[in-house]
């Protein structure tokens, strides 16, 4: 099948698929960021049970394979009387896994700040909240741009899990298997999806390093 034939027949579906992947990526990423921040605050809190629970959370979702998590959500949860839509299952999986990595990156970002700066801020009479606001947050955010860019790309790659459940509209991976089971789409279908993924990743990467160059902190 040539590109033009493929696009006439499946063009709309491709647009939908690209949109599905982008949307899933964006929503998952934002949720992962939110959860990642909360988990990180718990991990650096002086309250031991919170620290332990948050560390446990990170170890679980950093180390669980996406497929294993998705299967638990789709097939195992109903046995506990928790039935979620396929979309919800995918969204949860593609949020929880990146959220654990998000927390790891945030901790790494914080660790780039010299501990002496905290002592200096303290010696100037800043309270804990003033130190967080003036010294820690601005530096942690600015040194997290590249890791967060990588996280966004990684989140997009994770959303391919959506192809493992029946979703309508399909995502960029799901559509390749769909076309290939309905027609002999051949390599073209694969190449289009691959190019859209890789293109998105390169775009994110470029924007990320552009932003990073603007805000990077000289050390």
């Amino acid at each position: 099948m040539s590109i033009s034939e493929l696009l006439t027949e499946y063009g709309d579906k491709y647009v939908q698929a690209l949109f599905t992947t982008w949307q899933l990526t964006a929503v998952s990423f934002l949720l992962a960021l939110l959860i990642g921040i909360v988990i990180t605050v718990m991990r650096i809190s002086p309250v031991l049970p919170l620290r332990m629970a948050a560390d446990f959370y990170v170890q679980i979702f950093r180390n669980i394979p996406g497929a294993a998590l998705l299967i638990l959500l789709v097939y195992a949860l109903p046995y506990l009387n928790v039935v979620l839509s396929y979309y919800m299952c995918v969204l949860i999986a593609t949020t929880l896994i990146p959220s654990a990595f998000c927390s790891e990156y945030l901790i790494a970002g914080m660790n780039t700040i010299g501990p002496g700066q905290i002592e200096a801020a303290r010696s100037l009479g800043m309270t804990f909240l003033q130190i967080i606001r003036n010294v820690i947050l601005p530096q942690a955010v600015r040194s997290s741009v590249l890791p967060m860019t990588n996280l966004l790309v990684a989140t997009m790659l994770t959303t391919a899990l959506a192809s493992q459940v029946p979703l309508n509209p399909r995502d960029l991976t799901g559509i390749v298997s769909y076309i290939n089971t309905h027609a002999v789409g051949g390599v073209t279908a694969f190449v289009i999806s691959a190019a859209l993924y890789a293109g998105t990743a390169v775009l994110i990467g470029q924007l990320g390093s552009l932003l990073d160059r603007k805000v990077r902190i000289l050390r």
Binding site: I113, G114, A120, R122, Q139
Partner: peptide
């Protein structure tokens, strides 16, 4: 601890071995 400690610290300056300027 607390605000009272911070207030008192504000009255005493400190200069460190490793400067500890805010890098951002």
């Amino acid at each position: 601890e607390g605000k009272e400690l911070a207030n008192l610290r504000a009255q005493i300056g400190m200069v460190f071995q490793s400067f500890n300027l805010f890098s951002h």
